[in-house]
Design a binder for these strands. Structure first.
Length: 348
DNA sequence: TGCGCCTCACGTCATGATCA
DNA sequence: TGATCATGACGTGAGGCGCA
């Protein structure tokens, strides 16, 4: 398959996955984030993500009592209520507090780009150097949320409510990745899913599904793994003890896998079936480098996905905050008008 | 219907931040 | 201090939409 075709294939799968994720988020599943609960309102009629609009809010109840620190309940369209603290209070940090830094930096970059255009001297490395200094979204949001109770934090790790759909293309982050002597990658995810990736196939394409079913049969506590290889050979079964770690494959036309108890703990749970000490020839070193690179790329792929997800969440949270602050601002103005009326006696 | 534009999501690279 | 993580930048492809 050509690169274009492959990308198309992967994209189709991923798009489907994304839609499944969106659907699962919209079907009333519990979300503890204001932003996530508002995701449905961010959708346009075409179902496509577009320029986000500010969430409309309504004031659910006027708890404003004079002289007391009032707390106003702001009803978001999603039904979520947000506590807006007293009208008179210490200035809160602007919603664009941290992004202001970004704005300044972007302005600098714009200048840089201009000068680069005019002179054509500044290379992309310098630009990258400047651009990469931005603070992380998570950091910004967590700083904001620590200041203001209404802003949810971006969690370090998503709870299971956002569990990946049972699609092999999702490439669930494996707890253990093994490499067989045939060069295949075997990843055992936390949910027990086993993924086998053929060498040379980057990422999801080479994955073969292994379904695990619990059985009370053979060794107690063992798990029967049905090898769902797409060969015409049919289904193979594996017995996987409870905390299996090591997988080896025999060379030959018919690969076999042995899953054993762990012996040594290597970083990131990666166990090389081929002894590292035997890697002497340049070819083996090159293969090793290639495998390492593929592994790194795979991890980075997942990290990038997660990063984008957090970024979207961050943006939604900011939008929610804008909505809340707008309501707060409106109330401030109203209260100011009221105070003006009280303090300025009407002429007879 | 073809074309151009826009948006979105992705993969990859580079690099700062963080961890062991 | 090296390994790993997190994330911005960049390039690319696909799909939607308006227009001639």
């Amino acid at each position: 398959m050509s690169k274009c075709g492959r990308k198309k294939y992967i994209k189709t799968n991923l798009r489907q996955m994304t839609m499944e994720t969106i659907e699962s988020q919209q079907d009333g599943s519990v979300t503890d984030s204001v932003a996530e609960s508002e995701s449905a309102h961010m959708q346009t009629q075409t179902g496509q993500n577009s320029i986000p609009t500010l969430a409309q809010v309504s004031i659910a109840g006027s708890g404003t009592g004079r002289g007391s620190p009032a707390v106003t309940l702001v009803q978001l369209p999603s039904g979520q209520t947000v506590h807006v603290q007293g009208v008179i209070q210490t200035p809160q940090p602007s919603v664009i507090q941290s992004p202001q830094i970004q704005t300044v930096q972007v302005a600098t970059i714009a200048e840089t780009d201009e000068s680069a255009e005019s002179e054509g001297v500044i290379d992309s490395h310098k630009r990258r150097e400047i651009l990469s200094r931005r603070p992380s979204y998570r950091k910004i949001l967590n700083e904001l949320s620590s200041d203001v109770p209404g802003v949810p934090k971006i969690e370090e790790e998503k709870s299971e409510e956002e569990g990946t759909p049972p699609n092999i293309a999702t490439m669930a982050v494996p707890t253990s990745i093994y490499q067989t002597s045939t060069g295949q990658y075997i990843a055992i995810a936390q949910g027990g899913t086993i993924q086998i990736s053929n060498p040379g196939s980057d990422g999801v394409q080479g994955l073969q599904a292994l379904t695990m079913t619990n059985s009370g049969a053979p060794p107690p506590g063992a798990t029967i793994v049905q090898y769902a290889a797409q060969s015409a050979d049919g289904t193979q079964q594996f017995f996987v003890p409870g905390s299996q770690v090591v997988v080896q494959a025999a060379t030959g036309d018919m690969p076999t896998y042995q899953i054993r108890a762990p012996t040594t703990a290597l970083p990131q749970g990666v166990v090389m079936a081929a002894s590292p000490g035997s890697l002497h020839s340049p070819q083996q070193l090159a293969e090793e480098a290639t495998r390492k690179r593929e592994l790194r790329l795979m991890k980075n792929r997942e990290a990038a996905k997660e990063c984008r997800r957090r970024k979207k969440e961050y943006v939604k949270c900011l939008e929610s905050r804008v909505a809340v602050l707008e309501v707060q601002n409106k109330k401030l103005i109203e209260e100011l008008e009221t105070l003006k009326d009280i303090c300025s006696p009407k002429p007879d």
